[in-house]
Design a protein around this nucleic acid. Structure first.
Length: 272
DNA sequence: AGTGCGACCCGAACGC
DNA sequence: TGCGTTCGGGTCGCAC
């Protein structure tokens, strides 16, 4: 499940492979991935080229001449680079072909990912982008900012960490890890989080995401062999998906509960 | 306004 | 074995 670290890895990896190559064909196999007009999507892309790839939260922003292609991988979206001669396999939904006989192929088993083509001047007013809050790496993400946002918020802190309008980029997995590292119980009411705990949330978010990006970097090689970028975050998770196992700090059995409909893992001794 | 929940998908895991 | 059922994950849109 791509979170901000995986998206950043995809961005860096694709930048090395697809920039400044002329797009010669676009094959839309499963149209529902594309939220904007499908005919225009083809018309704008063919003959165009990607000049840069940006990112905002979990959104990938492919920069074209005059347009941006926004792409959200949701849970299982992946990009592959393949030779155009290779057979199209199951779950490849959008195929963008370049003039050097390679393809950028969007692969998504659950078909949850979304793409949207917008004019460059509309980027700032596009709600998907505009809504993104500060990222853990942003200098402006301070304990004061977070504390103020949290004070006016009801409901469990776990749910609030998933709100992209406050902190942009955390998903279900890292939200559990951040709360564990911050010694905060996932069901704590958001408004009860102290300013000191806000700082702990910021520090652990940064640490966890930086490490994940670093790990993502190590998987770049496998990308070229058309395996897609798969984060190796599972190697260092402390609580997420660890129900029934011992807490790495105190040995207490990790619990699993539902918070806002999402599976949530925590250590009842370490997280108050 | 804020909050909660179903819908979108389909492979994997589970129950019988 | 093979069938049917449930679950999960991020975000949007609708209902309250």
């Amino acid at each position: 499940m791509p979170e901000i670290a995986e998206v950043e890895t995809v961005r860096n990896t694709l930048k090395m492979r697809i920039l400044n190559k002329k797009i010669v064909n676009v094959n839309i196999i499963y149209p529902n991935i594309i939220e904007s007009d499908k005919d225009e999507f083809k018309k704008v892309l063919i003959g165009n080229e990607f000049v840069d790839i940006l990112r905002k939260g979990k959104w990938l922003i492919f920069e074209l001449h005059n347009h941006y292609l926004l792409s959200h991988l949701r849970m299982e979206g992946k990009y592959f680079i393949k030779d155009s001669s290779e057979e199209i396999v199951k779950h490849e939904h959008i195929i963008i072909s370049f003039n050097d006989n390679t393809d950028l192929r969007y692969h998504d088993t659950r078909k949850f990912g979304r793409m949207k083509l917008i004019k460059k001047e509309d980027l700032a007013s596009t709600k998907e982008i505009q809504k993104q809050g500060l990222e853990p790496m942003d200098k402006e993400l301070t304990k004061e900012y977070l504390h103020e946002k949290f004070m006016g918020k009801r409901g469990p802190i776990k749910t609030t960490l998933l709100d992209q309008e406050i902190i942009s980029g955390l998903g279900n997995i890292y939200a559990d890890e951040v709360l564990f590292a911050s010694n905060i119980h996932p069901l704590r009411d958001t408004s009860s989080i102290t300013i000191h705990e806000c700082q702990k949330i910021i520090d652990s978010s940064k640490k966890i995401i930086e490490k994940a990006i670093e790990m993502g970097g190590t998987t770049i090689k496998s990308y070229t062999s058309s395996l897609g970028v798969i984060g190796h975050y599972q190697d260092y998770l402390k609580v997420h998906k660890k129900e029934g196992q011992s807490c790495p700090i105190c040995g207490t059995i990790i619990k699993r509960i539902k918070v806002g409909g999402r599976s949530t893992y925590y250590c009842e001794k370490c997280q108050k």
